[in-house]
Design a binder for these strands. Structure first.
Lengths: 244, 244
DNA sequence: CGTGACATTGAACAAAGTCAAAAGTGGTGG
DNA sequence: CCACCACTTTTGACTTTGTTCAATGTCACG
C-alpha cells in the first residue's frame, strides 16, 4: 500500500503534519486501492457516497454534465488530494468523477474517517485542512471563471496546477506535465476548446509559457503570475491555531 | 435567542432533524448574536476564522474582490444557513462576508462545534448535511457560471434562491422578495450589471418572471425551470444512510 | 422639490463561440 | 520503416453574446 501513497505523505509532510502517530493511524486504516484507466468512471452521478478517497497517482476530474453536451469540470484531483472525506451527510452524488489518466485511488470507509475525527486523531487536522483547501479551490474556481478574462483564466489555472503539483513533488520548479487534453481544461474554464487553443497559442507566442509535448514550462513564472493576477495564498491556508 | 432562530429551526425541521436532544444541544451552546447593517462587513479578508455562523435573518454574501474593481460573489447566505462551521483548519479567510440587508447572525465558537461533532451529538448530522449542501451549492454555481447562457444563469439563480427561501418559509409558493440590488446578482453570475438588467427585462417581457418592487414572481415556475434547466436535486441531498 | 442610488436603454465595440477544414500526433500493423 | 487510422490541436471566416460608455429614467426619502 505504501508504494502508491508517496504523494499523500509528501503532501502532509510539506504541511508539517506527518507525525509518528499519524503514520500509525494511516496504517491502521483499511485502505482499499483501486485502479482506473483514462475515461473510466470512479463515481457516477446518483451513486450514494459512502467513502472518502485519496489520489495515489494520476489525475481525475469531478464534472457535471448538462443534458445537451455541455459539461463543466468542477475541479481536478491530483496526486495526494484527499476528497469527499468530509461528506458524511449521506445522499447521492450530483456529479461524476472520472479518471483522466491511469489512476490509482485509495478509498477509506466513512466509518473509519468518522472515527478518526471523533478521536481527535493526529490525522484529523490534516483532514480538516484538506477539506478547507478543497473549498478554497472551489471558490477560486468561481472567481476565475466569473471575473477573469480567458487569458487570465488559463494562466491562473496553469499556475494553480503547478503549485499543487509542486507541493507533492510532482512538478519541477518551472514546469510540470499536463497529461490531459485541452478539452478538459476548456471544460474547467468554461471556454470552448477552440478558443482555449487560441489562448494557449497567444501565451506561447508571447513567451509566457512554452510547451514541449505535454510539458508546460514557465520561462518567467513571476511575469505569468502577474498576467494571471495569481496569488497562491488560497492554496496553502496557513495554520494559525492550535486548538486541538 | 430563540426569537431570531426561526429560520434555522424551520430548516432543520424540514430536513427532519429537529429532535428534542438537538434542541437541547442547541440551547446549550453559547450563541452570541450580532447585528449588521447593509454594506457592513461580517468577516474581512485576512481575518483568522475562529467561529461558525448561523444566519438568523437577512441576506449576506461571500465575495472575493480582485484589485481592480472586479468582484465576484461566491455565494449568498440566506436565513437559516449555517456557514463556516466546517472550517477548523485555522488559517485566514481569503474572502469577505458582507451584510446585504439588515442582518442578524449567531456565532458559535469552533470549540463548541468541535465538541458537538465529537460527541456525535444529534446536531452533528445537521452540521454535516449543511456543509454538504454548501459545497453542492458552490459546485452548482461553478456550472451555472461556466456553462450556462446569461438567461439560463439568471433564471437558475432566481429558482435556487426561491427554493432555498421556501425551505425556511421565507418565500411564497410562486414568489419571493429579493432585497438586494442587481449589482450583487451580476457579481454572483459573472455578468455586467448592464447586461443583467437587459436579461431581467427580457425575462419579464416574455412573462417568465414578474417584478413588483423587490418581489420576484414566477407566473409559471415549471416553464421557468425549463428555461433554466433547473433541477433542485442538489439543494436537498437526500439522506439515504443511517450510519451513526 | 431635489438628491442620490439604482435601473434601463442605445450605440459602438470587444470577447468568445461556432462551423468547417487542415495540420499535427501517436499508435498499430504490414 | 512506412502507411494508415483515430484523435487532438490549430487556423480561418463568420456569428453571437456580452461589455463599455454615456445618457436617461425611476423611485424612495429628506
Amino acid at each position: 500500500m505504501t508504494m502508491q501513497m508517496g504523494g499523500f505523505f509528501a503532501r502532509l509532510e510539506r504541511v508539517g503534519l506527518l507525525t509518528a502517530p499519524m503514520a500509525q493511524a494511516l496504517g491502521s486504516l483499511a485502505l482499499q486501492q483501486r485502479r482506473y484507466e483514462p475515461r473510466e468512471t470512479v463515481i457516477s452521478r446518483g451513486e450514494p457516497v459512502d467513502e472518502g478517497f485519496v489520489v495515489c497517482s494520476g489525475w481525475a476530474s469531478r464534472s457535471i454534465s448538462l443534458g445537451d453536451g455541455r459539461q463543466q469540470v468542477v475541479n481536478f484531483m491530483l496526486p495526494g488530494d484527499l476528497f469527499d472525506l468530509q461528506i458524511f451527510a449521506g445522499g447521492e452524488t450530483d456529479h461524476t468523477v472520472t479518471a483522466l489518466t491511469d489512476l490509482v485511488i485509495a478509498s477509506v470507509s466513512r466509518r473509519d474517517v468518522l472515527a478518526l475525527l471523533r478521536d481527535g486523531s493526529a490525522l484529523s487536522d490534516g483532514i480538516w485542512r484538506s477539506a478547507a483547501q478543497e473549498i478554497a479551490i472551489l471558490r477560486e474556481q468561481i472567481v476565475r471563471n466569473g471575473r477573469r478574462s480567458a487569458t487570465e483564466r488559463v494562466a491562473h489555472l496553469l499556475l494553480e496546477l503547478h503549485a499543487r503539483l509542486l507541493l507533492v513533488e510532482e512538478a519541477g520548479q518551472d514546469r510540470f506535465e499536463m497529461p490531459i487534453g485541452q478539452k478538459h481544461i476548456a471544460d474547467a474554464l468554461g471556454l470552448s476548446y477552440v478558443h482555449l487553443s487560441r489562448v494557449f497559442g497567444q501565451l506561447e507566442r508571447s513567451r509566457m509559457i512554452l510547451r514541449e509535448r505535454s510539458v508546460i514550462i514557465f520561462p518567467d513564472p513571476a511575469a505569468l503570475a502577474e498576467v494571471a493576477k495569481f496569488s497562491p495564498a488560497y492554496l496553502f491556508l496557513q495554520d494559525t491555531t492550535s486548538t486541538r
